[in-house]
Nucleic acid binder design. Sequence first.
DNA 1: GTTGGCTGCGGTAACGTTCCCATGGCATCG
DNA 2: CGATGCCATGGGAACGTTACCGCAGCCAAC
Lengths: 352, 352
Amino acid sequence: MSSSRNRRPTIIDVAERAGVSKSTAARALAGSSNITEETRERVLKAATTVGYERNHLAVGMRSGRSGLLGLVIPDITNPFWADVARGAQDKAAESGGSLLVFSSDWDVVKEAAHLGALRRARVDGAIINPVADSFDDLDRFGLPFVLIGSSAERFAETSSVGSDIAQAVRLGMDHLVSKGHYAPSLILGPKNRLARARFLRSVHEHCVARDIDPAILAVEDGEYTVEGGRIAMRRLLERAHVGHVCVFAANDMMAMGAMMAVREAGLRCPEDVSIIGFDGIPSGEFTWPGLTTIAKPGRGLGERAVEGLFNEIEHRPEHRRIYLPCRLIERGSLADLSTATPQRAVAGAGRV
Amino acid sequence: MSSSRNRRPTIIDVAERAGVSKSTAARALAGSSNITEETRERVLKAATTVGYERNHLAVGMRSGRSGLLGLVIPDITNPFWADVARGAQDKAAESGGSLLVFSSDWDVVKEAAHLGALRRARVDGAIINPVADSFDDLDRFGLPFVLIGSSAERFAETSSVGSDIAQAVRLGMDHLVSKGHYAPSLILGPKNRLARARFLRSVHEHCVARDIDPAILAVEDGEYTVEGGRIAMRRLLERAHVGHVCVFAANDMMAMGAMMAVREAGLRCPEDVSIIGFDGIPSGEFTWPGLTTIAKPGRGLGERAVEGLFNEIEHRPEHRRIYLPCRLIERGSLADLSTATPQRAVAGAGRV
DNA sequence: GTTGGCTGCGGTAACGTTCCCATGGCATCG
DNA sequence: CGATGCCATGGGAACGTTACCGCAGCCAAC
């Protein structure tokens, strides 16, 4: 009678079993002070025998902290964002938290709806890749949050975590130069995207530092898709050019599209055209040749974002932009023009 | 004084504003009966003006339903599981629920820890791809759940959702036959995996139905990885064989590894070796040639799993195994031997 | 010996919601 | 006209937890 068969044991059941009050049981379970070692052990033992597990809903109710974190990203199906989610998930789990994942599909309405769901679920805070341009939805959110990804640039006053585009471009350009390429053609994203300007600016800065005139670089725009890259590459090949062509694509999907366009034009990669991408998506490993690219630290971003979020929640505001370094992944899509017999060397280096 | 500036408005604030008791406010907000239309409108208006949002923690506390659903999968970074997660997420959001995502990394200890976290978070139920072989962890879970994926086969008594392997194999074999291939070599997973036996059994059944002796099929085992597929393919090519080789791989990663091995052996796909995979991972689109494969309905599995879970929660037990159909994705890795000039036809069909 | 502080513990309120029950007003019917 | 029933509303308890306060017992110091 005292405790039903399938009701889940509460702290009161533990207290009764241990012969103490629920206050004492709570103290023992919380590991706090002012309690005899003997009582604590008795309570702990009672807890395990009745199979007690703390009810986070009740804790959240009482303490105002639910232990829930929100993550709003464009699409969990996108490998980059899955990587971010994984990092966030692991970091949250480290401190006993759980992650609520939502996909916005780059849709402002869905994003707003998801933010509402997070508020109602009483998450302690959220990590958001904002699709909305305006700040309205965000400060309507009313909870601690950190922004993630390059679109965070639009919001000056909030802490954010993103990858270090400038460092990434430098890494790519240095690699190109080390392989004997000096003035790569660029395949960039649409003109209205902020990331495009940032990428281009970084390339220019690097050129200036190396005494290369940025004006000589061929530039094509396209959608951030395989098809966009393919079209851009086609246009690039139609331009007059002499000898080996080198392409720096602002996105791996575009780079893979470019690779297709090269093949379709009857040319070979990397013998005739060298390609380097940017993102580090897994598919790049399985193209032929494998795609040399700069990988964004997706998982690291997720981890760092959760750390930043905890700081916001604890009112230890960093209010800083964090930029995490990217890393080069060498596969076979870049010819080595710095040696005497580039073609043969490259052909062998395609796979390891 | 009556309401602090940054405290979030409760139903009591709404009630005060509307000049009614909290019971009446609750009734109005719940849209329940026994309330004047006029009062309901007054309450609703008060709710929007004070910016009230229902506290799901408190609701969960009182009603025993948190609106939270758990998802425990091996790795959100794996595109198949990301697809599943997306389906589950969308379906959960449809009914106002949220999804807690956890990755177990095929680790029994992590799995158990995640299940514990879900219990403490008071999720209403969970969708689990079980890594543990034993039923112990699962019925220790003590909450409604549905299993997902092929490993669910090990547990007879629980409802589960998986892809229809038999139908998938039939689809693949029919396609092979329609392209003039009759007795494909098989690249299967490790012997201890249940999925291997299921796949092989389906192939055998199909062979019997078509009067093909299953014994003539060459079979190689390997890990479910690119490397595993590459090694298996190498062994397959070492065997004596005449003419065109056709390979049915039990997994896309292995299929891609096989494709590499073909290239490394100086042969061409699909001219010399035809390959068909199984899974439908996105990377298969970017190999050369594109990988023809049978796609598992990842998103559909996630959606169906949530539906099944709701049934479990509402005590409308289906206690059924659901098998969702797979679909064929034709790309270029399979030669068409049914026409007079197979090579040229295939080469053109590689990309659309 | 009285006082003061400290320590271990119990009682109780509060978090926000919903559900059950009580109450009072009004209409209907005998 | 009084009894009955219904309906809109209000009051209060409960979900499980933690924090605050109070109380008893003990030791030390004056």
